[in-house]
């Protein structure tokens, strides 16, 4: 067991075998006076969160290319249909907010699924524990000041109340090549599960994605070749320019 031979135990199991049993200790009253005091203070309402709040925020799009973000830069560029109804400029990104606030406690970012409305896409998170467990409240689709679709609890008026625009209604099933391409890139890179170092290989993969998506007029641009410090090739989507660009990022991210 002293050397990691092919018959050695799984290293993860080895680590797990060293787990402290203390972590499962149930704290009885009196075991730790400081803990008792904290519990009493919280129940008395005299302790407030310091501001981190909520479970982990995932600010990056859910679909990620080899650890690098699929950047959906400036999208359709459509003009607002009225003063309050707006189209997102970023047509590929969606954020589901836990609160009717521009600074929600939880913000889950992902790529828009064009087969459903934004509200329908966020709704399951109000049941699966990501944003809640008791089902979705009334949800409104807004457009943030950065042009991203944000789904918040409330109505269209709520969007305006927090400084956003109400998003113009969307028809599920509308074709969205940018989202389809972004998702395809993500899935391809995730399936590779490695640092892709060869630019030519990456470009070939991206061109195949464009062909598979049947996206007319899309091109691949090598924006940032890999370097020694950032040897991995990632990809981003510029929906407005109908362009997939490559960018470099460090290995291990």
């Amino acid at each position: 067991m002293n050397s990691p031979t092919s018959t050695a135990p799984d290293p993860f199991e080895l680590l797990s075998s060293m787990r402290s049993p203390d972590i499962d200790r149930y704290l009885e009253p009196g075991d730790e006076p400081a803990a008792d005091a904290l519990l009493a203070s919280i129940l008395a309402g005299s302790v407030e969160p310091s501001g981190a709040g909520g479970p982990p925020r995932r600010r990056w799009p859910r679909r990620v290319v080899g650890g690098a973000v699929v950047l959906a830069v400036a999208g359709g560029g459509a003009v607002a249909a009225s003063r309050l109804l707006a189209e997102p400029t970023d047509t590929a990104s969606l954020s589901c907010y836990s609160d009717a606030s521009a600074e929600p406690a939880i913000q889950v970012a992902m790529v828009i699924d064009p087969s459903v409305t934004p509200a329908q896409q966020c709704a399951p998170m109000w049941s699966d524990g990501t944003l809640g467990t008791s089902g979705a409240p009334e949800l409104a689709s807004c457009v943030t000041d950065t042009g991203i679709t944000a789904v918040i609890p409330g109505t269209g008026d709520t969007c305006v109340d927090i400084g956003f625009d109400e998003r113009a209604p969307t028809e599920p099933g509308s074709p969205n090549p940018a989202a389809a391409i972004t998702n395809a890139i993500s899935d391809t890179w995730s399936a590779e599960d490695r640092c892709i170092r060869d630019v030519d290989e990456a470009v070939a993969m991206l061109e195949q994605i464009i062909a598979d998506a049947g996206a007319d007029g899309w091109t691949v641009e090598v924006l940032q070749p890999p370097t020694d410090d950032m040897p991995c090739v990632g990809a981003g989507v510029n929906a407005q320019a109908k362009q997939i660009f490559t960018a470099a990022y460090p290995d291990g991210h």
């Binding site: 904290l38 519990l39 919280i42 129940l43 302790v47 407030e48 981190a52 709040g53």
Partner: peptide
């Protein structure tokens, strides 16, 4: 303190 206050 912050973690459990958030949980509450």
């Amino acid at each position: 303190s912050s973690t459990f206050a958030t949980a509450w």
